[in-house]
Design a protein around this nucleic acid. Structure first.
Length: 586
RNA sequence: GCGCUUGUAGCUCAACCGGAUAGAGCACCAGCCUUCUAAGCUGGGGGUCGCAGGUUCGAGUCCUGCCAAGCGCGCCA
């Protein structure tokens, strides 16, 4: 419909051009929007106001000429000039009714489109270090990323969901060493636990497992472990050098192979937990991409060699630097440390190089907002590698602050007291957690009230939407109990008897669904789905209270049932995208 | 100090990327259940869109400055 009106306007402009009212070379961006107010008809265009200035004409007079030049069309019943020069279109109600038949025929695929067809897009999200369970901060990225990915797929993009596993690097060594130290405690050794090690209970659990399976095979005397280790922070030392020394000690005392056991068991356990957690949260990936793999298969060397060829690397203070400041970053960055080790950034350059080589038209990284300072250097790296930095889109997800009613929930990773995503799910359920996480624009700071999410009351928007769905189901059950059968065709043939304002409002909202989806996808804004679904639920609840559906008049009854079933279908489609359940009874 | 993000009703947030009278929910007040689920609906009050300029037919939206909050500014990841 929108396209049709745009076409009509285009023809009108062409007519005016041949009549000499408008210049031949005048380029007109024709924009038609759905009218916000029913008084303004169904669609509106600001074309006359856009053209007024270049044409040196009064917008209202120009609008009149455009209206006069508009070709006749059966679907348009009235065209009006309004306000400062808006052209409002009133659509023939008969065309509006077609949406119900369309929804009925297309079912679950109603709303899907092909605007992204032929384009490959990668969405990388969560990618939390496998050094502990996911916490609530990761939840938002998980919910947002998964809905965004599904949304992009719904509008035709070929979507690849990926999790980057940071299974190399110092944090993993800290984990392996933490597990080993807890293991030694299990064996009966007495030794202090480093302030910078991972303190969560899960570390102890893994250590206990290892002890049960392997006995004392990895046991080394505490005295040897502690010998000549520089002091920890509480004792006036530096916690980083302390833990690094312990890592080195673990490697020497255990030897490469035994040390690797701790590394691998830790990684395997935690990654399995993360995968399981995400799956239960309704998040799936096509690929779990290993950072270690980039190290092992020479990808990092390859990427750095390429930078070197381009003259982007130099040596200073014994380290190798990437001249990122020449490409928009605030300063140059080290890629190979003085000790010969790659930095995290080096493997990230290789990773993004690899991503772009895989032929994605768009690469989307979803990061926590605290990583925003990292964007310029990654973009610089992409440019230096000779690729288009525009292909990378980084979406920043702000943290959610948890509340329990008025009270702020404290989180602290160090102390091990953080609220895990799993705990959150157990407390509020998958549906509410996803709904709340996706409800806001991602760059919006968010307050997540656990009490509200669990409340089974009118305060809770999740139930509000699900309740609308359940109500339709209930109506259909009642229909059955009354011994009536739905006559879909009878209803379809008599849709024009739906003349109540609630009904026309619903028709308009239903018709908007496909456009909403396309826009939400192209703008990377899943929250629009939430907004829409709430609006549709509101329209439905209002209608439900205003008019009975199960009336004696079979014609009206079936027409209304068709409308209500269309609502049910679209609610289901929207909630399916959000990966939220649609209970038939509440 | 520099950079990124945010600032809209008492609270939590929208506003179709520059359009018409800035909208919802919660909270508050007043109503609606012998009739399809009251987890619902109807009505009401509530606003200097952080502040000040600018751009134009038109600005919550764009540009500049300032104020405030969060985050970032490692040879950590």
């Amino acid at each position: 419909m929108k396209q049709k009106i745009e076409e009509l306007l285009r023809q009108a402009v062409n007519t005016l051009k041949t009549e000499g009212v408008l210049e031949q070379d005048m380029a007109a961006q024709i924009v038609v929007e759905r009218a916000r107010d029913a008084q303004h008809g169904d669609f509106a265009s600001n074309l006359a106001m856009m053209l007024a200035k270049p044409a040196k004409a009064n917008p209202r007079q120009l609008a009149e000429k455009i209206i006069a030049a508009l070709p006749e069309d059966a679907a348009i019943t009235k065209v009006e000039l309004a306000g400062p020069g808006f052209i409002n279109f009133f659509v023939n109600p008969d065309t509006q009714y077609q949406i119900i038949r369309q929804i009925h025929e297309q079912g679950a695929s109603f709303g899907l489109s092909q605007v992204g067809a032929g384009k490959k897009v990668q969405v990388e999200f969560v990618s939390a270090n496998p050094t502990g369970p996911l916490h609530v901060g990761h939840g938002r990225g998980a919910a947002y990323g998964s809905v965004l990915a599904d949304l992009l797929a719904a509008v035709g993009f070929e979507v690849h969901r990926e999790y980057y596993v940071n299974d190399a690097g110092r944090q993993m060594d800290i984990l392996a060493t933490s597990i080993w130290l807890r293991y030694l405690e299990e064996c009966g050794e007495v030794l202090p636990f480093p302030s910078n090690a991972y303190r969560g209970d899960y570390v102890r659990d893994i250590a206990r497992d290892i002890h049960q399976n392997a006995g004392n095979d990895y046991r080394r005397p505490a005295a040897l472990v502690q010998e000549d280790i520089p002091a920890d922070e509480p004792q006036g030392g530096d916690k980083e050098t302390h833990i690094d020394a312990l890592i080195a000690r673990a490697k020497t005392l255990l030897g490469t192979n035994l040390y690797r056991d701790f590394f691998q068991i830790g990684l395997k356990n935690i990654l399995a937990d993360i995968k399981d957690d995400l799956q239960e949260f309704g998040v799936d990936y096509q690929q779990w991409f290993s950072e270690r793999r980039l190290m092992d298969d020479g990808s990092v060397d390859k990427a750095l060699a390429r930078l070197r060829e381009g003259g982007h690397l130099y040596e200073k203070d014994g380290a190798v630097w990437f001249a990122s400041s020449a490409l928009g970053d605030e300063k140059d960055r080290v890629v190979i440390r003085e000790n010969g080790q790659y930095t995290y950034f080096a493997s990230d350059i290789a990773y993004h190089h690899h991503k772009l080589e895989r032929g994605f038209d768009q690469v989307i990284d979803i990061w926590g907002a605290d990583h925003h300072g990292y964007i310029p250097r990654v973009k610089a790296a992409i440019m230096a590698l000779g690729a288009d930095a525009e292909k990378l889109k980084v979406l920043l997800v702000q943290f959610a602050t948890l509340y329990r009613g008025e009270e702020k929930v404290q989180m602290s990773t160090r102390s091990g007291e953080f609220v895990t995503l799993r705990q959150l799910r157990n407390e509020v359920g998958k549906d509410a957690a996803r709904f709340f996480y996706v409800m806001r624009r991602c760059e919006q700071h968010m307050d997540f009230d656990l009490q509200l999410a669990t409340s089974r009351s009118n305060e809770n928007p999740v139930f509000y939407v699900q309740y609308a769905f359940a109500r339709v189901c209930s109506v259909l059950r009642q229909l059955d109990e009354k011994g009536w059968e739905r006559d879909i065709e009878l209803g379809m043939d008599n849709l024009p008897c739906l003349v109540e304002s609630h009904e026309t409002a619903l028709l308009a909202t239903l018709a908007r669904y496909p456009e909403m989806l396309a826009k939400a996808a192209l703008q990377y804004e899943p929250h629009q789905i939430v907004m829409y679904v709430r609006e549709l639920a509101t329209d439905f609840h209002t209608y439900y209270n205003a008019h009975p559906f199960l009336v004696d008049d079979a014609v009206l009854r079936n027409a209304r049932l068709n409308l209500v079933c269309a609502v049910k279908q679209v609610l289901a489609n929207g909630l399916r995208l959000l990966n939220i359940t649609t209970p038939e009874v509440m």
